[in-house]
């Protein structure tokens, strides 16, 4: 399988999008949008993160096994986040002493 060399031009466009998103997220952060501040900031961060992983870290061009490791790692992270926070956020629903 011939390896894929990503051009500097591709890198530049990804870099440009990342910079624009950084500016947008900072500008949006200065305005009070209630709960949408959190949603927008996290959404933009996830878009930036995916761009970095796919192009700067070459996962878009990688072989299936490496892609699988990244997807499995992310799923495992969400298991950690969801199960533990699920426990914390629902504990007060039952008035059990010593919660």
């Amino acid at each position: 399988m011939p390896e894929h060399i990503v051009t500097k031009k591709t890198y530049f466009w990804i870099f440009a999008v990342l910079m624009v998103l950084t500016f947008v997220t900072t500008a949006v952060g200065m305005i009070d949008l209630g709960p949408f501040n959190v949603i927008l900031a996290l959404l933009i961060a996830v878009i930036k993160g995916v761009l970095v992983v796919l192009f700067f870290m070459h996962i878009y061009y990688s072989e299936r096994l490496t892609q699988l490791v990244v997807v499995a790692g992310t799923l495992w992270l969400f298991l950690l986040l969801f199960l533990t926070s699920g426990d914390y956020f629902t504990r007060e629903w039952l008035k059990v002493p010593g919660k």
Binding site: T25, T26, V28, G29, N37, A41, L42, A45, K48, G49
Partner: peptide, 12 residues
């Protein structure tokens, strides 16, 4: 990329 919004933006 995740630390910046969490500390500087979302709680402001």
């Amino acid at each position: 990329i995740f630390l910046f919004p969490l500390f500087y933006l979302v709680a402001r």
